[in-house]
Design a protein around this nucleic acid. Structure first.
Lengths: 354, 354
DNA sequence: CTGAAAGCGCTTACAG
DNA sequence: CTGAAAGCGCTTACAG
């Protein structure tokens, strides 16, 4: 069925005013309840609007005049599918919407991938929230800032003029490493999140670590190194069970070099490692201890009872939303940092006796 | 650390033009490559822009003048978290972005819940995509249409002037039911998606079905009824493993009334039912056959090898994106309907001998 | 190749 | 309580 879209031209406020016999100033006041308008006049205006099929001010014109669009840009560096595969991102997004929605704001998804144009720079946003962005978007962020648009970053590198909503990634990972050391583990491996935008998968080397651009992944590596200075491991393409499984197979295949514990940088990755272990006939935690990160609810028995650090993702999103609102109101909020909580599960135990 | 946001006022095109000693018309052409500008003039304009810190046209003004904002609204009737828990929605969103992103469009998330204001009506969108919306948004959709804004609906009720991207929900469910009948099942139960916005969980009754507002859920019920006219079951709050498990427990608890097969309206729900069956000591497919819907990749062993209908979610999203683009270009695309493919897995078998 | 003019549709001081 | 005026910042015919 073909759909027709050649309607009459949309009526304007001016047309309504003309028909009602008033000035457009008055008509505007009537539609915005923003000034004293006689009841009789208001009725006339509303009647004229009804007759003309006018349903309120054009958002585009209003946003130019007011200097506000009611749109908050959310900048992701991946495809939407990749970004939302990580439940943490979805929860944080929900937290932002929770706080900013009631005052009439909506979220615009801006995927700043290599392929895309400069959507960030060309979008009519009032404010911007960066979701773990790499330095490659810095120049665009500066442009946006020069326009006076507030920028909030969730777990970003410290950037001048950007309000940071942080997490104790380093300390939290150190706590997990200490937990493993306390159990007696000496052969421990990391399974990291994506380290940079190249998204190459493979053995974790010092040079790969040094060239990492993902602030969060790097901080978590640093935390582990505080306890296990020479820790190696495997770098994945991102937080999924599949990636964890691939990493797990790579790390666990050879009994001679096999670690007795794995620090996965997310629960999803941890679930994958546990699955790989199972496939190799290894018992968790009997043969292998595994810890994760996030404290997400994973619908996978393999991840039930995972030892992990629980991060307050919803609160982080809400804090980012509050930061946006305060900045838009002209305030000067301070950066906030959230703390993760250790949750001892059933996936860690002393290393197997040799 | 407090963040400062009192920068200098953003420079305008007019200021750049003045400084370069040209008209703003010429400056505009220079920034848009939309007309012939002498190289020397262009250089002067760009230099002036650099000196003033001008990074290009203000998106708000541009969108008013051009009548295009580059923003496509995506209307959801749930919280972002609920919506994105369903992988189908994420994939469809990705499909839309796939197609519309390259021409400079971004997606604005509009959650039309009872709580929210009328964000749909007040957002500066060029077009709108409805994600399975109920009649409660109809009046807002009409307003948007009156403004000449194209509307595309994914699996919606037929709405005048709305381009539909459909799925063979009814026929596909009938095929699943026929598969079960072919195996010899006579006691079959449904586990449905949310039926309406009330989001009440519970036994499926004819009156609940009759008052359903979710087009997709209802179509799938109708398809099952074509084979099992008096089919009953359980209505959930949405497509999650947990909801499936709750429904499964309710349906399977009593051995006397227990069905021998369950038609779950999504793979996630099916996985939950299978898990519930396992907890009750029932073997799938020995004691119970289970079918799903979607063909999504679920990271749950319980859902591995599920018998289901595979729907082309990415293609649906892309088709919606193409529809948007064609409508924006003034075309009159036809509605499209996609077909699901039966995938026989290992979760269906003849009913147990009595 | 460049400029003067009009105008996108609205809101906001300001004056009455 | 109402209106005339200015202007948000840009783009687009049109004329030269």
């Amino acid at each position: 069925m073909p759909v027709d879209h050649t309607g009459p031209v949309r009526p304007t406020l001016a047309a309504v005013a003309r028909r009602a016999g008033v000035s457009s100033s008055t008509a505007s006041l009537a539609f915005n309840d923003s000034g004293p308008v006689a009841q009789e006049t208001r009725d006339r205006i509303l009647a004229a609007a009804r007759e003309l099929g006018y349903d309120g001010p054009d958002p585009r014109a209003r946003s130019l005049r007011r200097g506000r669009s009611g749109i908050i840009g959310v900048v992701l560096e991946e495809s939407l599918r990749d970004a939302f595969r990580d439940p943490m991102n979805v929860v944080m997004l929900d937290g932002i919407a929770d706080v900013t929605g009631p005052s009439g704001n909506s979220l615009l998804l801006l995927t700043e991938t290599a392929a895309s144009g400069s959507s960030l720079v060309e979008a009519p946003v009032d404010a911007v929230v960066l979701f773990g962005c790499s330095p490659s978007v810095d120049s665009k962020v500066e442009i946006v800032q020069r326009r006076g648009i507030p920028v909030v970053a969730i777990e970003g590198r410290p950037l001048p003029g950007v309000l940071d909503v942080g997490l104790d990634n380093r300390e939290a990972t150190r706590a997990l490493a200490e937990h493993l050391r306390g159990l007696g583990h000496t052969r421990v491996a990391l399974v990291t999140l994506e380290l940079d935008r190249d998204r190459r998968r493979g053995i974790l080397t010092p040079s790969r670590i040094d060239s990492a651009t993902s602030f969060t992944a790097l901080q978590r590596v640093r935390g582990a190194e505080e306890v296990y200075p020479d820790i190696g491991g495997y770098a994945t393409l991102g937080s999924t069970i599949d990636e964890g499984r691939i990493a797990g197979r790579a790390l666990l295949a050879d009994p001679a070099t096999r670690p007795t514990a794995v620090i996965a940088q997310s629960d999803l990755l941890a679930a994958g490692v546990i699955r790989a272990a199972g496939e190799l006939g290894l018992d968790v935690p009997g043969d292998l201890s595994v810890v994760g990160f996030d404290g997400v609810r994973i619908d996978d028995p393999a991840a039930a009872g995972l030892t992990t650090m629980v991060q307050p993702a919803l609160d982080k999103g809400r804090a980012a939303g509050r930061g946006v609102l305060e900045l838009l109101a002209g305030g000067s909020p301070s950066s906030v940092s959230f703390t993760s909580a250790f949750r001892r599960g059933s996936t860690t135990a002393p290393p197997p006796a040799v």
